[in-house]
Amino acid sequence: MVNCTKYYLLLLCLLFASIPVLGYAEADLEINSPAISSIKQRMQSRHSELVEYYNSGAVGLTQDGMVMVRNANAVSLAKRQHVNSLVSAENQDRNALYREIARANNHPEWESKIRSTFGERWINLARSGWWYQAGGRWTQK
C-alpha cells in the first residue's frame, strides 16, 4: 500500500515534470488549483486499488488518457462490478483533471490536447507488464 502510494507520487511527479518539454510550452501542466488538488488526491487514493488490476491485465491504459476494463476474466465475478466502478470513477477524475488544468491555464479549449499529452505520458510511465492501447490494439509493456 505504502509502496503503491510512493509509486503513484513518483509517477505523478514524473508525469507533470516531463510534460512541459513535450512541445506544449504554453500550457502549465503543473498548475495547481483547489479543484486539481482534490482530484489528484482522489486519484492517488484510488491508485493503490487499481494497481492490482493493472498488474493482472484486467485494466489497461487507453491512448486518450483514460483507463478501461481490458480483460474481465482476470477478476472474480464478485469483483467485476467493483472494477467497473473503479474504472468509471477514475475516468471521471481523469476527465475532470484535464478539464481543470485547461481551465486553470485560462484555455478550456486546450483540454483535448492536454488529454492526449497525458495519455501518452501515462503509457510511457506505465510499469512493465501493464497493458496499453496502441493503434486500437492492446499491447503489453
Partner: peptide
C-alpha cells in the same frame, strides 16, 4: 459460462 471478454459470465 462466460463470453470471451468475461462481461457476461456465471459461476
Amino acid at each position: 459460462f462466460s463470453d470471451r471478454g468475461g462481461l457476461h459470465a456465471g459461476d
